Deep mutational scan, measured.
Amino acid sequence: EDTPTSDDLEQFAKQFKQRRIKLGFTQADVGLALGTLYGNVFSQTTICRFEALQLSFKNMCKLKPLLNKWLEEADSS
């Protein structure tokens, strides 16, 4: 899998936040949902820092596919 560039991550974080708000989920909701879906719960702080691009590049890269999958799930339900 290609490592995203920081531009990709920035773009995704922006879109993710917009979609999340549009779908009516809080950052805490997302963190809990990730726990339900993938077995690891993320704190509201982590989601907040992802959206604000304040996590390390490595952590951003790790979270992106999970959040992307969550968006697909949320969109289809």
Rank of each mutant, 00 (worst) to 15 (best):
E1H: 03
E1Q: 10
E1A: 09
E1G: 11
D2I: 13
D2V: 07
D2S: 13
D2W: 05
D2L: 10
D2N: 13
D2G: 12
T3L: 10
T3G: 05
T3S: 11
T3R: 10
T3Q: 10
T3Y: 12
T3C: 13
P4M: 15
P4A: 11
P4D: 14
P4S: 12
P4G: 12
P4E: 13
T5Y: 05
T5L: 11
T5C: 14
T5A: 11
T5Q: 10
T5H: 10
T5R: 10
S6C: 15
S6H: 15
S6F: 14
S6Q: 15
S6I: 13
D7P: 08
D7H: 05
D7V: 13
D7K: 14
D7R: 14
D7N: 03
D7I: 05
D7S: 14
D8F: 07
D8M: 11
D8E: 15
D8S: 14
L9E: 01
L9M: 15
L9V: 09
L9R: 01
L9D: 03
E10C: 12
E10W: 14
E10G: 06
E10N: 06
Q11F: 10
Q11H: 13
Q11T: 11
Q11M: 14
F12V: 04
F12E: 06
F12S: 02
F12Q: 01
F12C: 03
A13D: 00
A13L: 01
K14A: 12
K14C: 08
K14I: 06
Q15L: 10
Q15H: 14
Q15T: 11
Q15W: 11
F16N: 02
F16E: 02
F16Q: 02
F16A: 02
K17H: 05
K17T: 07
K17L: 02
K17E: 04
K17Q: 12
Q18A: 11
Q18W: 04
Q18S: 12
R19C: 08
R19I: 07
R19K: 14
R19Q: 09
R19H: 11
R20E: 01
R20I: 01
R20P: 00
R20S: 02
R20W: 00
R20C: 00
I21F: 04
I21N: 05
K22F: 09
K22G: 08
K22M: 10
K22V: 05
K22R: 11
L23K: 05
L23S: 05
L23Y: 08
L23M: 14
L23G: 04
G24S: 02
G24V: 01
G24T: 00
G24A: 02
G24I: 00
G24K: 05
F25N: 02
F25C: 07
F25V: 06
F25G: 00
F25R: 05
T26R: 03
T26N: 04
T26L: 01
Q27N: 04
Q27R: 07
Q27H: 13
Q27W: 05
Q27I: 06
Q27Y: 15
A28N: 12
A28D: 07
D29P: 02
V30S: 00
V30E: 00
V30R: 00
V30C: 07
V30T: 03
G31H: 05
G31Y: 06
G31L: 02
G31F: 04
G31A: 14
G31V: 09
G31S: 14
G31R: 04
L32K: 15
A33E: 07
A33R: 09
A33L: 05
A33T: 09
L34V: 05
L34I: 08
L34W: 00
L34M: 11
L34F: 01
L34Q: 00
G35F: 07
G35T: 14
G35A: 12
T36L: 07
T36V: 08
T36F: 05
T36G: 10
T36P: 08
T36E: 14
T36R: 13
T36D: 10
L37D: 09
L37G: 05
L37N: 09
L37Y: 08
Y38E: 07
Y38F: 11
Y38T: 14
Y38M: 05
Y38I: 05
G39L: 01
G39H: 07
G39D: 10
G39Q: 07
G39R: 06
N40T: 10
N40E: 15
N40G: 14
N40M: 09
N40S: 13
N40H: 15
V41M: 13
V41K: 15
V41C: 14
V41G: 13
F42I: 11
F42A: 12
F42V: 15
F42C: 12
F42Q: 15
F42S: 06
S43C: 11
S43E: 11
S43R: 06
S43I: 01
Q44S: 13
Q44Y: 07
Q44H: 11
Q44P: 13
Q44C: 03
T45Y: 05
T46P: 02
T46L: 09
T46M: 07
T46W: 05
T46H: 06
I47W: 01
I47N: 01
C48S: 14
C48G: 13
C48L: 08
C48M: 15
C48Y: 09
C48K: 15
C48W: 09
C48D: 14
C48F: 07
C48T: 10
R49S: 07
R49W: 01
R49L: 03
R49G: 06
R49A: 09
R49F: 02
R49C: 02
F50Y: 04
F50D: 01
E51A: 00
E51G: 01
E51R: 02
E51S: 00
E51I: 03
E51K: 02
A52Y: 03
A52K: 10
A52F: 01
A52N: 13
A52H: 06
A52C: 08
A52L: 09
Q54F: 00
Q54G: 06
Q54W: 04
Q54R: 08
Q54T: 10
Q54C: 06
Q54L: 05
L55T: 03
L55M: 14
L55R: 03
S56Q: 04
S56M: 01
S56P: 14
S56K: 08
S56H: 05
F57Y: 14
F57T: 13
F57M: 11
F57L: 10
F57V: 11
F57R: 13
F57H: 12
F57C: 03
K58R: 10
K58S: 11
K58V: 09
K58I: 08
N59H: 13
N59E: 15
N59S: 13
M60W: 02
M60D: 00
M60I: 00
M60K: 00
M60T: 05
C61I: 10
C61W: 08
C61S: 07
C61M: 10
C61R: 12
K62N: 08
K62F: 08
K62W: 07
K62D: 11
L63I: 08
L63C: 04
L63V: 06
K64Y: 12
K64M: 10
K64E: 05
K64P: 00
K64L: 08
K64T: 09
K64G: 04
K64Q: 10
K64F: 06
K64C: 03
P65Y: 15
P65M: 08
P65V: 10
L66F: 11
L66I: 10
L66V: 10
L66N: 03
L66M: 12
L66H: 05
L67R: 00
L67W: 01
L67G: 00
N68K: 08
N68D: 07
K69S: 08
K69W: 05
W70C: 02
W70E: 01
L71E: 02
E72Y: 06
E72Q: 13
E72W: 07
E72F: 07
E72C: 11
E73Q: 15
E73M: 07
E73W: 10
E73C: 14
E73H: 06
E73L: 12
A74K: 11
A74N: 15
A74C: 14
A74D: 06
D75I: 10
D75W: 10
D75G: 11
D75V: 08
D75F: 05
D75Q: 14
S76Y: 08
S76L: 09
S76F: 08
S76E: 13
S76R: 14
S76D: 14
S76C: 10
S77L: 12
S77T: 15
S77N: 07
S77K: 09
S77Q: 06
S77M: 07
